[in-house]
Amino acid sequence: MNPFRLMHAMTAAVLSAVLAWPAHAQQASTPQDLVALTQQWVDQALAQLPADASPLRMQVQVGQLDARLRLAPCNRVEPYLPPGARLWGRTRLGLRCLEGETRWNVFLPLTVQAFGPAWVLTGNVATGATLTENDAMQSEVDWAANPAAVVTNPQAWVGQVAALPLSAGQALRQNMVRAPYLFKAGAPVQIRVQGPGFAVTSSGQAMAAGAAGQNVRIRMANGKVISGIVNSDGTIEAAL
């Protein structure tokens, strides 16, 4: 399952769990009660994940509130996701008192882990080095340990170039690799300019290095700057 799809499915399950939270009083008088309620709520959310979340193995670690915190007894506590929060990696859960002498609102830390297959580097790889099938082996890792999506298909990294220094033991993620550059900044390139009813082939100068599929800017012989998409053969496809 795509990690971003899983993350959104997890959040949707959480929102569903909030709506289904029992209407009867959820009493809490100590921070420990809040932790227990949170574990109950998270377990309910995990149970609603779609079956195709497999082969990921989900785990949620509920953190602790500040030991110095003193909360007034509450007859009903409502859990909620703060705006912009996601149940993925290190996050937090809002808990607010709806029925009590004193209304309060606190945030409890959570760590959501999603263990699944990924490719882990067997040695160090320098920036710009081309990755081969011998550079990584398949292993189980926590997909949620980093915001960047893991690379699960070897076709997505074999033959790609390291975008930054990589270390042995790292799980390959999409921001770690890039397509190899087909030309450097300042290099002469061929451009195919297409317009309504015509196509013209011309030449220009690349204003930046380019890889297949990238959008690059080209300076034409007349000084005009246009943008186009790099083809797999290093030519540029532009449109007027």
Results as ranks from 00 to 15, higher is better:
R92H: 06
L131A: 01
Q59G: 01
F107T: 11
A85H: 00
F115D: 13
T122D: 10
P82N: 00
E78Y: 13
R90L: 10
P31L: 02
L49Q: 11
Q59Y: 03
A36V: 11
D33K: 02
L131R: 03
E99W: 07
R86V: 02
E78C: 11
T91Y: 01
M58Y: 12
L95G: 02
Q44D: 15
D52A: 11
D43W: 09
G84H: 04
R96Y: 15
L46M: 13
P31F: 02
Q44N: 13
A67G: 09
A36T: 15
V106C: 07
R70M: 12
L69F: 04
L121A: 08
G63L: 00
N134Q: 14
N105S: 14
R86N: 11
R103L: 12
R57Q: 15
G94L: 01
G100F: 03
L98R: 13
W41D: 05
Q39H: 12
R76P: 04
S29P: 00
T127V: 10
R103A: 13
E101M: 06
A47R: 15
A67R: 12
N75V: 00
L46N: 02
C97Y: 06
L110Y: 00
L65T: 07
A85V: 02
W104C: 04
R70D: 11
V62R: 01
S54Y: 09
G116V: 07
D135G: 10
T102W: 05
Q32E: 14
R86S: 12
A118S: 14
L131V: 05
Q39K: 15
R86K: 07
P82G: 03
A126T: 08
D52L: 08
R96N: 06
W104F: 07
W119P: 10
L56F: 13
A36F: 14
R86I: 00
L69E: 03
Q64S: 11
Q59P: 00
A85N: 00
G84N: 06
A129L: 07
G89E: 03
V106W: 04
T30Y: 07
T102L: 12
A47N: 09
E99F: 05
E133C: 04
S54V: 06
Q59S: 09
N105C: 07
G84T: 04
W88I: 00
G116H: 07
S54R: 10
V120W: 13
L46A: 03
Y80D: 10
P55Q: 01
D33E: 03
R86C: 04
W41N: 05
Q61P: 03
A72S: 12
D66G: 08
T111S: 09
P55A: 02
M58V: 15
Q44W: 13
L121R: 09
R96L: 07
R92W: 08
A118L: 00
A67F: 05
R57L: 11
L93K: 00
F107I: 05
P109T: 11
P31S: 04
C97M: 03
E133V: 10
F107R: 09
S54E: 12
A118F: 03
L98K: 10
L110T: 02
L87S: 06
T130G: 06
